[in-house]
Amino acid sequence: MIEVTDVHKTFFVPHKVKALVGVSTQIAAGEVVVVIGPSGSGKSTFLRCLNHLEAADSGHILIDGIDILDRKTNINKVRAEVGMVFQSFNLFPHKTVLENITLAQKVVRKRSTAAALEKADYLLKKVGIHDKANAYPDNLSGGQQQRVAIARALAMDPKVMLFDEPTSALDPEMIGEVLDVMKTLAQEGMTMVVVTHEMGFAREVADRVIFMDEGAIVEVGTPEHFFKNPTHDRTKLFLSQIL
């Protein structure tokens, strides 16, 4: 589903930082991959490169066989297939919950209003905030907003979902409701790449855990291997710091 080969990315603003140094990995359809690592390790950059919110400098990123670093690729078509959930939700504050979910369906997928509403209806029930359909995002709690954001991404019927620290901006009591939605999604066989600090989620849901540090993938393995017998010193150090 996703093939990443030797991707490099360097930021020059505000100062020169090598964010990704030769990252390669493959993610199969239906797989749930959790990316962890200390802050500044390049895990968010890696995720954002997958739907070209950041343009990688070199290498190849194939989404469903399409090279998104090829200049001839229509990136908007690829992005419609790749849902993304942000740390800060990024709901559209001038639109209601329902409009947030239906807008891109109509504009990008060219669905009729009725079809878009039906889809939104179904998804709002699924994420458990059906009663807030006509509320504006500012009137929702963080957990509710993030669930709307998930529904908004799912409305496009994506083949892959990317989660960029979806629970980091939430109050502790709301983390659970978001993680529950994500777990359901994983059980349904959605391909997911999740950057998170929620080790419990990684242990429980992930098929594979990727540990990144200083822009490179240090260690990859099943959660069992990863949390019980990490091989690299840096992984051990990181785990000892957070667990």
């Binding site: 739907n51 919110l53 908007n76 992005r79 790749v82 849902g83 990024n90 709901l91 908004r152 991404a153």
Partner: peptide, 11 residues
């Protein structure tokens, strides 16, 4: 983030 959210949906 608003632009990013819109673009990530394929707009």
């Amino acid at each position: 983030g608003q632009t990013e959210a819109a673009r990530s949906l394929g707009m």
